[in-house]
Amino acid sequence: MADSPVSPVPVAPPGLSRRAQRFIETAGIRVRPHDIRRHRDAWIGRGIPAAEIERATAFQDCWGGLALSPAPFYEGGPRVLNADCPEAMPAGGWSFPAGDCRVSMAYSFMIGPDGTFGIDAHRWTPLHAGIDGWVESLALAAHARRWATTVTRVTRKAVDALDLGEFEPVPEVRGVIDSWWRGKDSLIAVYRGEAVGLDAPQCLEAHIYGGLDEWALHGG
Rank of each mutant, 00 (worst) to 15 (best):
R146P: 02
A2R: 14
P169H: 01
V6T: 08
I208K: 09
A50M: 05
T155M: 10
L212S: 13
R55K: 15
P14C: 00
R40K: 15
G65P: 12
R19W: 05
T152P: 02
P49E: 04
E75T: 00
G112E: 08
Q60R: 10
T57A: 15
R192L: 09
A139I: 00
T26K: 13
S7A: 12
E172K: 00
L66Y: 10
F96H: 10
P10L: 05
G165C: 06
G197N: 06
I36S: 06
P33F: 10
T152L: 11
L164I: 05
V151A: 13
Q202R: 12
P126A: 04
V159D: 04
M110F: 12
W63M: 07
R22I: 03
L187Q: 07
P201C: 06
D185W: 04
S4K: 11
E205H: 12
L140F: 06
R146D: 02
L217A: 01
K157H: 11
G92S: 11
A139S: 09
A129H: 13
H128R: 05
R46W: 10
E25V: 04
I119S: 07
A106W: 09
R156N: 09
D35M: 03
R40V: 14
E205M: 15
F96V: 08
G115Y: 07
S137I: 00
A20Q: 13
A58I: 09
V173C: 06
W134Y: 15
L162E: 03
G93E: 09
A158I: 04
G112S: 03
V176A: 09
R38E: 15
A58E: 15
C85W: 11
I188W: 07
T149R: 14
W94H: 11
I36F: 08
Q21Y: 04
R55F: 03
I188G: 01
R123S: 06
R182V: 00
D100S: 07
D3C: 04
D3H: 08
A20P: 14
W124A: 03
W124G: 01
A206V: 10
D213L: 04
G197R: 03
W63I: 03
D213A: 00
G130E: 13
A88I: 03
R192Y: 01
D160F: 10
L162S: 00
R182L: 00
A51V: 12
H39S: 14
I177C: 10
V6L: 02
Q202M: 00
L217M: 01
R102M: 04
P113K: 06
P72V: 01
A42Y: 00
P113Q: 14
G210Q: 06
R79H: 10
M105S: 14
I53P: 15
I36V: 15
I48C: 15
A91H: 11
H128Y: 15
E214A: 00
H218M: 07
G76I: 00
R153H: 11
A142S: 12
W134L: 06
L127T: 13
H34W: 14
L162Q: 02
R37W: 13
G193M: 07
I29A: 01
Q202E: 08
G76A: 02
L81A: 02
A12K: 06
S17T: 14
P171Y: 00
I131K: 01
T116N: 14
G47A: 13
R79D: 10
A2D: 05
A121Q: 05
S186D: 09
V170I: 02
